[in-house]
């Protein structure tokens, strides 16, 4: 399971403030905390409030790379912002994200190729997010074809079937699970699958329980990665346990401890 730490996002008040006041300490603290908690990537999103998002992204990349050697996941809908970040990244980054829309594909995939970056492709287009697994899979196929067209290796393509809050779109959850299964049949090698996990529990009570239950269900469906709260210990314990039950790790009585120390 590839875990992308979600916490360095301007949507969180402390991070938003740090970006606005150019204060590196909260950012670096979250970078180190998430790395210690077992993150494989760190998501960077300057949030909607950043005055100059290009400058903010460059600063975020530099600030995080000063204390962490983890690869970064550059998260923005503005591709100039992502490009500015890619120019600073010391390790191949993950572009978060690109929908199945031709102009955006034409902007993102050549950029990914140029920087050797990986891409998260979203199963949505101009019309929005379809409900059923068939339509989601069809959009995933468009993105797979785009990766092939622009020469981005399929191992570097991550498909996000877009999980929505369960209190908004409860009927989407099973469709997302089915999409995760089907995406694996689209190509050889298949693309990876990833979800923005915390989305499933937006504005609910029992957020952690919903997150970890969905995580385990998605892992059973073949999920490869998640952008999530890696500092949620119960979530990490669930991931470790699911890995054991899916025969991805060899069981030992101390498996939880070993999973936490795996870096």
């Amino acid at each position: 399971m590839i875990l992308v730490g979600e916490r360095i996002n301007g949507m969180f008040r402390d991070v938003g403030r740090a970006i606005a006041s150019v204060d590196p300490h909260p950012i670096q603290e979250w970078a180190q905390r998430q790395e210690a908690a077992g993150a494989d990537y760190l998501d960077l999103n300057c949030g909607p409030a950043a005055e100059d998002p290009i400058k903010a992204m460059r600063w975020l990349v530099d600030t995080v790379q000063a204390v962490s050697s983890l690869p970064l996941c550059l998260d923005s809908t503005n591709y100039d912002v992502i490009e500015a970040g890619l120019e600073r990244c010391k390790r191949p980054a993950l572009i978060n994200s690109c929908p199945a829309e031709r102009p955006k594909i034409e902007r993102v995939f050549p950029m990914a190729k140029r920087f050797g970056a990986k891409v998260i492709g979203l199963t949505m287009d101009k019309k929005g997010i379809p409900k059923d697994a068939d339509s989601r899979t069809a959009l995933a196929m468009e993105i797979v074809a785009a990766a092939d067209e622009f020469g981005v290796p399929l191992e570097d393509l991550w498909i996000d079937p877009l999980i929505l809050p369960v209190n908004v779109a409860q009927d989407h959850v099973v469709e997302v699970l089915e999409t995760i299964r089907r995406v694996k049949t689209l190509s050889s090698p298949p693309p990876k699958t990833v979800v923005g996990l915390s989305n499933v529990s937006q504005k609910t009570v029992n957020r952690s329980l919903l997150d970890r239950t969905f995580m385990v269900m998605a892992m059973a469906a073949g999920l490869d990665g998640a952008i999530c709260n890696v500092c949620d210990e119960e979530l990490m314990n669930s991931v470790a346990t699911a890995r054991i039950l899916l025969n991805q790790d060899v069981y030992a009585d101390s498996y939880l401890k070993v999973f936490r120390k795996r870096q």
């Binding site: 060899v250 069981y251 030992a252 070993v258």
Partner: peptide
């Protein structure tokens, strides 16, 4: 026993 093998190495 691979599980005990791993556990002993951890310990």
């Amino acid at each position: 026993d691979i599980n005990i093998c791993k556990q002993l190495n951890i310990l």
